[in-house]
């Protein structure tokens, strides 16, 4: 391998090592340290001047105290559990909203499909923050949704939606909908329509043909879409802090407050490490699904 090729690998490799891997090492290290009233606010700090004895005493001071603390204070496991619950419910809701849209797109005349695709992708390019913010004016007590529901006479008093978990579900479904639609659409579009006809010829009703043929064939798309919604929803910060209320506890928000409000860096780091551990399982399942897909296509 000549020098030029080495350079090509070395530069992005070194960049990621320094700005991705080492920062995580630091998070891990600080999560094992103790909080202190100092700048930076944790102890111990590594002192190279003492040589080996300094390094040994440094390592002997690291412990799992913060992790023990996370299990003792109910705030944290409540936050982890409620993040899991909110992410699961919103993933299912996104699937229910997204599947019919993806299905209708795959069934639409082929000259319309590029336009429909663009209409699904366009919101993704628009600022996430703005899309979440747009719901604040709609869901508030005197917001447009309540005005509309009062006007048609469905409700007599305005509903409280903003600053509850309901608003968080709506926000997650809204912002992550394209991630659900696109993989399902991709799976359905590849499907051979004659399979449906065959099922119907063999005596299936349209509905049972849908359940027996279409749904199984779209399964890889459904799985991919669900993970693409679930994984980011679990660590979500913007949606719970703008649309959720004081009772909406999600782990991303807890981490943020631990760091910015309480300035407790070791606990914030420990929260981050646990969140990462929680995410490893869905990420590995997602990658297995993708790999299986690729193998089937070859």
């Amino acid at each position: 391998m000549d020098l030029r090729r080495k350079f090509l690998i070395f530069v992005p490799y070194a960049w990621l090592l320094v700005l991705f891997l080492i920062p995580f090492g630091i998070v891990l290290k600080i999560s094992l340290s103790d909080t202190a009233l100092a700048i930076p606010p944790y102890t111990p700090k590594l002192d190279w001047s003492d040589g080996w004895s300094g390094i040994i005493s440094y390592f002997s001071q690291l412990d799992f105290e913060n992790y023990v603390f996370l299990t003792e204070d109910s705030l944290y496991y409540v936050a982890y559990l409620s993040s899991l619950k909110i992410a699961t419910i919103s993933t299912i809701a996104t699937l229910i909203v997204g599947y019919p849209i993806a299905y209708a797109m795959a069934k639409s005349p082929s000259h319309l499909r590029p336009t429909l695709m663009m209409l699904v992708i366009l919101p993704f390019w628009t600022s996430f923050l703005i899309r979440v913010y747009a719901w604040m004016g709609i869901l508030s007590q005197e917001g447009l949704l309540n005005q509309f529901l009062l006007w048609i006479g469905l409700i007599a008093t305005p509903l409280t939606i903003l600053n509850t978990n309901w608003a968080v579900y709506i926000g997650i479904v809204y912002t992550y909908l394209p991630f659900m639609i696109l993989p399902i659409y991709a799976a359905l579009e590849k499907m051979d329509g004659s399979l449906m006809e065959a099922a119907e010829d063999l005596g299936c009703s349209a509905i049972s043909a849908f359940w027996l043929v279409t749904v199984p064939l779209s399964k890889p798309g459904v799985i991919a879409g669900s993970f693409l919604v679930f994984i980011p929803a679990l660590g979500e910060f913007v949606i719970p802090s703008l649309l959720g209320g004081s009772k909406t506890i999600m782990i991303g928000k807890v981490l943020w407050e631990e760091f910015f409000s309480n300035r407790d860096w070791p606990v914030a780091s420990a929260v981050a490490v646990i969140l990462l551990v929680l995410l490893i399982i869905p990420i590995m399942l997602f990658q297995r699904n993708e790999r299986k897909q690729r193998e089937m296509e070859q």
């Binding site: 920062p23 930076p40 980011p232 860096w265 981050a272 990462l276």
Partner: peptide, 22 residues
């Protein structure tokens, strides 16, 4: 390392980079 940042929650990436810069 190329794929990890795609699935990493932003709060973790942000925290890690800040601690690194400090």
């Amino acid at each position: 390392m190329i794929y990890a940042p795609l699935v990493m929650p932003e709060v973790i990436t942000g925290l890690a980079l800040l601690l690194f810069f400090i």
